[in-house]
Design a protein around this nucleic acid. Structure first.
Lengths: 245, 245
DNA sequence: CGCCGGTTTGAAGAATTTCAAAGGGAGTGG
DNA sequence: CCACTCCCTTTGAAATTCTTCAAACCGGCG
């Protein structure tokens, strides 16, 4: 078991507590997982489409995203990942990566061997339930993104992803009042929302001039949460954040 | 255990064999799950957004789909479900339904109590792995749909969903040569692909006049598979159909 | 100072939606 | 067996949204 400074897995602990009620022995067992920590630089691919990972990747610091390049070279981003997320958990039971994971910012990630996870599940079946649930929430977010891209206006769509990021950052204690980290360029936003960069730019201007948000250097402040939620048609139920019985 | 005619769970057996290698005792344990079979009529909602299901729903016959109604009343369809699918497995660990499940055609579904599944998982941990994997594939399909709606042309998109349906029907033995059941109206297709019915209509005409498909009464024949795949930018890896080690 | 990644702008063009109405086919009731 | 109805498909045309292209701008950093 590697030498580990206190608080390294703080984000994961928070995530666990926000999502499911486990016994403290179970929580401790999770936090005692053997990990290898690595720094990854912004833009680096952490796991690539076609890989057969033997470990899962927990984000400790920074922001990551998952994506795929389609036939004509266009990129589609599926999700953003913040500290406490394990973006490639699906590799536990899907051998081959059907998409890639990359770091959006300089990040710190912890690698957890699949084998350790399997063993943990055997020793603590309810812990398997926690991780399973994490993958199900992942799927729920994908569904919401499908709704977003498929059926909401560009304006709602952008507002929606901002609401989502705010609620998720808040849940891990990374929101300061109504300000969250926002290391997302307009091109990245475009590839996530299925639109062109130019159009994203115009929508962002609209959101700002409507005094709904203020965008700073790598951060974003929500100026009118109720109005933004209304515009976004945002309901946070799909994030399944309440603790489960 | 209810009285059960032979072959009722044939679709599920096929699905199991197509997806993962389990021991025959494990397969038998799955097929011995207590179920209640019900007929549901086309258009009926089987599970509704907001429900807290206590059982999972396995499709025995017919086609189902999952969807959600967004703020302005528009419907977004996330997935189609064919025999052997368990569309609401996520309810095992996500208490509240964040979307709905409905029958597209008259269907026969089997209800499996969550409790029986939990017990099965305890007795046969690898079986839990099978079901977990099913939910992960569900997620993989969502990702592909995000790519589809976000980054592919309307023509590719429609071609893509046809390819997907063909491969999935074939995997459960429900394709006859290159003909598959196709109970999908253009409105349903539109709500799944995030476009208008009118546009779907024009795209379908295009696919037909390019001699890629022929659409019959509730069925569809692929006339030129390689060309359709090419046009769709379709790769079936995201369906994860090969048996896992 | 000059480069660089990211943002912004304008304008033309393409894709897609919307609206409104007609057409078609299969099942149902008379 | 016909007429009718319902649901689905098809059509035309105008309006809108969004993309594309091309270039300017901007702020921080080496």
């Amino acid at each position: 078991m590697p030498n580990r400074p206190d608080g390294l897995l703080e984000a994961l602990r928070r995530r666990i507590e926000g999502v499911v009620q486990l016994g403290s022995d179970e929580v401790e067992a999770i936090l005692a997982l053997p990990i290898v920590v690595r720094q990854v630089r912004a833009g680096t691919e952490i796991v690539r489409e076609g890989d057969h990972p033997t470990q899962a990747c927990l984000i400790l610091e920074g922001v990551g995203f998952r994506f795929k390049i389609v036939g004509d070279g266009a990129r589609q981003i599926f999700s953003y990942h913040i500290p406490g997320d394990i973006p490639d958990l699906q590799s536990l039971y899907l051998e081959r990566m059907d998409h890639s994971l990359a770091a959006l910012t300089n990040s710190k990630v912890a690698y957890i061997p699949h084998r350790s996870l399997y063993q943990l599940f055997e020793a603590h079946p309810r812990v398997a339930g926690f991780f399973w649930r994490e993958t199900l929430i992942d799927g729920a977010v994908f569904r919401e993104w499908i709704s977003n891209i498929g059926r909401r206006s560009a304006l709602s769509r952008i507002a929606h992803v901002i609401c989502e990021l705010y609620v998720r950052f808040r849940a891990i204690g990374a929101a300061v009042e109504l300000t969250i980290p926002f290391p997302v360029t307009q091109t990245v936003l475009a590839d996530a929302q299925g639109m062109s960069t130019v159009h994203v730019n115009r929508i962002m201007q609209e959101l700002r001039s409507a005094k709904l948000i203020r965008v700073g250097r790598k951060e974003l402040t929500i100026l009118d949460w109720p109005a933004l939620v209304e515009l976004a048609d945002f309901q946070d139920d799909y994030l399944h954040l309440r603790p489960a019985a």
